[in-house]
Design a protein around this nucleic acid. Sequence first.
RNA 1: GGGCGAAUAGCUCAGUUGGUUAGAGCACCCGCCUUACACGCGGGAUGUCGGGGGUUCGAGUCCCUCUUCGCCCACCA
Length: 938
Amino acid sequence: MRLALVLCLSKTTMSELPDRYDPAKTEPEVYAEWLEHDCFGADASRSSRLGGDRTPYTIVMPPPNVTGILHVGHGLNNTVQDVLIRWARMRGTEALWAPGTDHAGIATQNVVERLIAQEGKTRFDLGRDAFVRRTEAFVEEKGGVILKQLRAIGASADWKRTAYTLSPELSRAVREAFVRLYERGLIYKGHRVIHWCPRCLTSLSDEEAEFQDEPGSLYRIAYPLSSDPSRSVTIATTRPETMLADVAVAVNPKDDRYRALVGKTVRLPIVHIDIPIIADDYADPEFGTGVVKITPAHDANDFEVGKRHNLSAPVVIDETGKMVEERDASGRVPAVLQGVDRFEARERIVAMLRDEGALKGIEAHQHAVRHCYRCDTVVEPRLSDQWFVKMAPLAEPALAAVRAGAIRILPERWEAVYVHWLENIRDWNISRQLWWGHRIPVWYCDDCDPPQNVIVSRDDITQCPYCDGPVRQDEDVLDTWFSSWLWPMSTLGWPNDQSRDLKAFYPTDVLVTAPEILFFWVARMIMAGYAFLGRAPYHSVYLHGTARDTQHRRMSKSLGNGVDPLDVVALFGADAFRWTLIAGLGLGADVILDPADLEKSFAPGRNFATKLWNIGRFLLSNLGDEPVRPLAELDPKQFSLADAWILERLDTALAECDGALGPLQPTKASDTVDGRVWRTDERYAGLRLNEYAESARRFAWNELADWYLESVKGRLARDAESDDREVARAVLLHVFDAALRLLHPVVPFITEALWQKLPGRAAGEYLVRASWPRITARAGARAGEEFELVREAVLAVRQIRGDYNVAPGKTLDVSILVSGDRRIYEENAPTIGRLARARVTVASGGAPEGAAHAVLRGGSEVVVPLAGLIDVDKECQRLRTELEQLAKQIVSREQRLANPKYVERAPEHVVKSDRATLDEMISKRGQLTEKVRALCGA
RNA sequence: GGGCGAAUAGCUCAGUUGGUUAGAGCACCCGCCUUACACGCGGGAUGUCGGGGGUUCGAGUCCCUCUUCGCCCACCA
């Protein structure tokens, strides 16, 4: 017992707080303790949806690529989530942050393909099974590193719930989703031109084929009329290599220039076959020559035109982007071009056209070219069979949700982008000709007739359910995003309807991500939420900016302009890293960091942590070991002005932080949409993390440390009057404790480390699970305002000290000439003296000569006799300047107040305070004038 | 081609529905190792709020226009 007491006491002594904060030592220790005590674990049975007493609050982590490593973008994304989840946890919710990784089909396959390429092999050399095993082994070896790295920046996710998109559980979810959509007729196989990456050898969705503006050429080629080779039509194309597959040329039916030619044929150069001239609205008379070549197999639009006109679709470019080798049915590719790469073929074909005299011109042409989002290869439109999801029916509830306010997107402007995309949504190509991913759950029976030859199944099958014959599974895998879009449900147990997690935590609350995957992922998750569970997956989407360098370039590995979060953690600590990101993160704004000068970006965070550490050191060394009374036990009448002031400032800071963070969840009931919707006044409020961080910082540093701590010093001395010392200790501990709580979500490590040392901590009590501070209004607002007068007096003396270069170490004799209530100054003369390093006397009457002075609010005056120290001429000069400025301000204010329109139209409180200020200025001018007369004669 | 955003102190950025004299951090200048903190303390300087025009008693804030940068969307081959 005695031993325990001694240990307990020693916890609060200075010896345990080193002079300097060492994040490298503290952060891992604190994190280990959090893990050890399961501080991040969420419990489904505590959720109010399962009869528990806490509102659930859930964030699902956007799953990083399983083999990825942490970069600043992840750091930003996860820090935002961690701030929110820690805040929610402290607000008393059952907070779940569900982590996980993504198998990242095409990305991971590319990485492994590069690895085996170093052995001189391709995936085809290994074969499918061996390649998949190889990839699994790679994931096993390298995977999940990023989640460990997230711990270094303080991520408080519930790690025991870590999910993986290719796990057996999530694979079941993928199958279930596919089958359900197929059964609803929303999945179909389509034969059309899709985006194809000739390097990855797979199809891509519209979103995966990214536009890049590039300078190109527009080639004009003459196609002679079959009937009269002396006449020709000239087409314009950026891709002459596809002309070999032309099956027609099209003109607009309204285009008078060509009307007579419709129905005739032209002779295709090089290939020398006849193709028809057709009329179709697709041809734009304004563009080029108004004649467009039609190549159904190599252009999505031409494919549609071809369908309308019943044209064939010969293929001249193969899956690797080379001109086809075997002679296709129409024999269109000359032997010299067979097997030639498409871009090389372009050059050669242009040369051949020139030789034939068919080339009519080449002009520079800026155009947008689609590239593979994973390997940047120019995408080739390719005719093939792919599985598609019919999106329009899924989009409807997703649109309605945002329109009705069941889901909000911040920053608000992205809602319009979201709506526009959904309104114009196109079907989603979900099959990929890859090996790494969820195999499409479709089997084919060669012995049965349609429709029984296609079997879609939740379970693997080995024989045909109709004829018991052999079946073969579709070779393709699903788009990675087909597993991602189920993430908020699948991580919680869907499709198991009995899953307690699903019941307890779905719908989740906020999704935090970057705008670039709004379509890829966010919108599709919302659609999936409605499609499979009839509820939106979350009520808020928070889109943050991008990490960029000082030239505003996106940070990337290839540019080498990245900032490694772990470097920052090693140099300055995770708190410094987090602080910089959050404090500088305006809603939706990009974060600009200088990779060449980490100190510049991250020192503010480190400095702030050090400041907190030193406040803690002061506090612990001055509080003593005796128990500290809770604030609630104190009689507010015992508060000094400073006590009342700091308590009032705390309440203000709390209100500001709460305002900046906003409502946790929507509160307005709705019987039509999702049960709850955002109230219009709350819809775009909150999640201003930078404002919250700044308010909390200002309170801790500029108010608590700079003023309260300084003012309280004398009262803490051991020989101080015991009652007052008690009050000071209680207030000091209370406000610091509150500051640590307030700051914890942003800088969790240092706040936890300090909080643990505060007196009165029970074993096993952690700040991470402590309650969010609440406004108490323990001190009257008036007392708080009175301390402002004290602060003003101190500032005035300091300013005079600065103006006259008086050494800070020198104690000044200061008189305060009071007009009005003497009590405030009399009571606080010692405080003013300590803060301003002065002997303070309170007096009344006229100002003495040869003194510097300052007029305070309310008309009192601070007078500092500086005989021998001041330059009277200089002071007179200063006073006269001040008087002139004051006079100008008075004039402009009088003019404004004399304006009848202003008085009539401006809000009453504005005019009123304007008048009050004017009165004060006039009174100040009177005193100043007198002062000048006394000091300077004239 | 359509749409969106940004432009405020040397740098990175705040500035709520228009409302008193536009702020913070860093950097800079002056003075301080004042017994929590030099990763600190005190004081200071710094802005035709991108240019031009307009609405208003009043504009960084609203409207028009121009310039520069960034992003998204788009079947002009």
